[in-house]
Simulated assay, not measured.
Amino acid sequence: MKFNGTGDMIDALEYPTTTEEIIANHGDAELELQRGTERVGDVLERLGQEEFESPEDVRLSVRSAVGHKAIGRRFYSDRDPTALGETGPTPLSL
């Protein structure tokens, strides 16, 4: 994931700050993901209302809340079970 300049924006925020303040002022900033882009506002809306004490708190939250466009092949794993709430391929035993 590339922050596309949003990293500088995150550093420049006055802390503490909230998801609501970031979305209102910078929600249209785009993150470049492996398979497309996603708006910062859309990512942070998934988290609900949070208060951030530092830029690193915001970065960790954004990284944890990006959608499926941030991963490689969706549902692919030769070891992990399908995650809760997901439906993946039917396992095949060889």
Score class of each variant (00 low, 15 high):
residue 1 M to L: 11
residue 1 M to I: 11
residue 5 G to R: 08
residue 7 G to Y: 09
residue 8 D to S: 11
residue 10 I to Y: 03
residue 11 D to K: 15
residue 12 A to Q: 10
residue 12 A to W: 05
residue 14 E to N: 14
residue 14 E to R: 15
residue 15 Y to F: 15
residue 15 Y to M: 05
residue 16 P to K: 07
residue 16 P to D: 04
residue 16 P to I: 08
residue 19 T to N: 06
residue 22 I to E: 01
residue 22 I to A: 02
residue 22 I to W: 01
residue 22 I to K: 02
residue 25 N to L: 09
residue 25 N to E: 14
residue 26 H to L: 00
residue 26 H to M: 00
residue 27 G to R: 03
residue 27 G to W: 02
residue 30 E to Y: 07
residue 30 E to P: 01
residue 31 L to K: 01
residue 31 L to Y: 05
residue 32 E to A: 15
residue 32 E to H: 06
residue 33 L to G: 04
residue 34 Q to C: 04
residue 34 Q to Y: 10
residue 36 G to W: 10
residue 37 T to K: 15
residue 37 T to M: 14
residue 38 E to I: 06
residue 39 R to L: 04
residue 40 V to P: 02
residue 40 V to Q: 03
residue 42 D to A: 11
residue 43 V to W: 02
residue 43 V to C: 05
residue 44 L to R: 04
residue 44 L to M: 09
residue 45 E to C: 05
residue 45 E to T: 13
residue 47 L to D: 08
residue 47 L to H: 10
residue 48 G to H: 12
residue 48 G to R: 13
residue 49 Q to I: 07
residue 50 E to I: 07
residue 50 E to L: 15
residue 52 F to M: 05
residue 52 F to L: 03
residue 55 P to T: 10
residue 55 P to Q: 12
residue 56 E to S: 14
residue 58 V to W: 01
residue 60 L to F: 07
residue 61 S to I: 00
residue 61 S to T: 10
residue 62 V to Y: 05
residue 62 V to W: 03
residue 62 V to R: 02
residue 63 R to N: 12
residue 63 R to E: 13
residue 65 A to K: 04
residue 67 G to P: 06
residue 69 K to Y: 09
residue 69 K to E: 14
residue 70 A to V: 10
residue 71 I to D: 03
residue 71 I to R: 06
residue 72 G to V: 01
residue 73 R to T: 09
residue 73 R to Q: 09
residue 74 R to G: 00
residue 77 S to F: 07
residue 77 S to W: 08
residue 79 R to K: 13
residue 81 P to I: 11
residue 81 P to K: 11
residue 81 P to G: 09
residue 83 A to T: 02
residue 84 L to C: 04
residue 87 T to C: 08
residue 89 P to K: 14
residue 89 P to V: 00
residue 90 T to Q: 15
residue 90 T to G: 12
residue 91 P to E: 06
residue 91 P to V: 14
residue 92 L to K: 15
residue 93 S to H: 12
residue 93 S to W: 08
residue 93 S to I: 13
